[in-house]
Amino acid sequence: MGIIGWIVLGLIVGAIAKLIMPGKDPGGIIVTMLLGVVGAFLGGLLGQWIFGIGLNTFWSLQTWIVAIVGSLIVLGIYRVIVGRKAVKG
């Protein structure tokens, strides 16, 4: 999958992750969608390392599943890190 495909997938998956994990995010939907790009990459790496499945093609169901899982992980970590900084500051 090309770099444009990664970016588009990540933006869409970031929005899906936001729908799955509703709540206030520091940075709003734009940051959430950018985290989706990072999450899609992370999901592809984790899927490849753990299960032997990565990001195949844009329309593959396994691509979307590992990208969504990666985005949820990144969004959760982001909320924990930024949430702690907001409480301390």
Rank of each mutant, 00 (worst) to 15 (best):
M1W: 04
M1T: 09
M1I: 10
M1S: 08
G2I: 02
G2Q: 08
I4F: 13
I4P: 00
I4W: 11
I4A: 13
I4S: 11
G5R: 02
G5C: 05
W6Q: 15
W6R: 12
I7W: 03
I7F: 13
I7G: 06
V8K: 09
L9V: 03
L9W: 04
L9D: 01
G10N: 02
G10E: 01
L11A: 07
L11P: 01
V13I: 15
V13C: 00
V13Q: 01
G14M: 05
G14L: 02
A15S: 04
A15M: 05
A15D: 05
I16G: 01
I16K: 06
A17Y: 00
K18L: 11
L19Y: 12
L19A: 15
M21V: 06
P22V: 07
G23A: 04
G23C: 02
K24D: 13
D25K: 12
D25W: 08
P26V: 11
G27I: 06
G27Y: 08
G27T: 04
G27A: 08
G28D: 04
G28Y: 02
I29H: 06
I29F: 10
I29Q: 04
I29P: 00
I29T: 11
T32E: 03
T32G: 14
T32Y: 00
M33D: 00
M33C: 13
L35H: 03
L35Q: 01
L35P: 00
L35E: 04
G36S: 04
G39M: 05
G39D: 06
G39V: 07
A40H: 00
G43Q: 07
G43Y: 05
G43A: 08
G43M: 07
G43L: 09
G44A: 09
L45A: 10
L46S: 05
L46I: 12
G47Y: 08
G47D: 10
Q48C: 02
Q48W: 09
I50S: 04
I50Y: 07
F51T: 11
G52W: 08
G52F: 07
I53C: 09
I53K: 14
L55V: 11
L55G: 07
N56G: 15
N56D: 13
T57S: 14
T57P: 03
T57V: 11
T57Y: 14
F58I: 12
F58Q: 01
W59T: 15
L61N: 10
L61P: 12
L61T: 13
L61M: 12
L61R: 08
V66G: 02
V66R: 02
V66N: 08
I68S: 04
G70K: 04
S71K: 02
S71M: 05
S71R: 02
S71H: 01
L72P: 03
L72T: 06
L72Y: 05
L72K: 03
I73L: 13
V74W: 03
V74Q: 01
L75F: 10
G76V: 00
G76E: 03
I77S: 08
Y78D: 08
Y78I: 08
Y78E: 07
R79C: 05
V80H: 03
V80S: 09
I81S: 11
I81K: 09
I81H: 08
V82R: 12
V82A: 13
V82H: 10
V82P: 05
G83V: 10
G83W: 09
G83Q: 12
R84N: 15
R84F: 13
R84E: 15
K85E: 14
A86R: 13
A86N: 14
A86D: 13
V87E: 15
V87S: 14
V87L: 14
V87P: 01
K88W: 10
K88E: 15
G89M: 11
G89Y: 10
